[in-house]
Deep mutational scan, measured.
Amino acid sequence: TRVETATETAWISLVTALHLVLGLSAVLGLLLLRWQFPAHYRRLRHALW
């Protein structure tokens, strides 16, 4: 049971790290898009909202 718990903890930390990385890359990508294509971003936002 001790090994299982350790594996579970490792998986949880791995998944958390993955989610953090994905979230950060998504935010960075959005910022980059907004910085590179302001007109396109505004049009996209206008279409979405």
Rank of each mutant, 00 (worst) to 15 (best):
Q36M: 13
T7Y: 07
V27W: 05
Y41Q: 02
T5K: 01
W49V: 03
T1N: 02
V15G: 07
L24E: 01
V15Q: 08
L30T: 07
L18V: 12
A10L: 11
L24T: 02
T16K: 06
T7E: 08
T5R: 01
R2Q: 15
R2W: 14
I12S: 09
A17V: 07
T5F: 04
P38M: 13
S13M: 14
L22F: 11
A17D: 04
R34V: 10
T1V: 12
E4M: 13
F37A: 07
L18Y: 04
W49A: 06
T1G: 03
Y41K: 01
T16F: 11
W49P: 03
A47R: 14
L28M: 11
L22H: 00
T7A: 15
G23D: 04
L28T: 09
W11N: 06
H46T: 08
R2F: 13
V3F: 02
I12Q: 08
R42Q: 13
S13Y: 15
H40N: 08
A6T: 15
L32V: 11
V27L: 15
H40K: 12
A17G: 12
L33Y: 12
R45L: 07
L44I: 14
F37Y: 10
G29H: 00
A17C: 12
R45P: 01
Y41R: 03
P38E: 05
T5D: 01
A47G: 07
S13G: 13
L22Y: 01
A26H: 00
V3W: 00
A10N: 08
E4G: 03
L48P: 00
A47M: 08
H46M: 05
L20N: 02
R42M: 07
T5N: 00
L33I: 10
R45Q: 07
R43A: 09
F37V: 05
L20E: 04
L31C: 15
T16C: 14
G29T: 14
G29S: 10
H40D: 04
T9W: 15
V3S: 01
G23Y: 01
A26N: 00
H19G: 15
S13W: 15
F37T: 03
L18W: 12
L32Y: 09
R42A: 09
T16I: 15
L30S: 05
V27K: 02
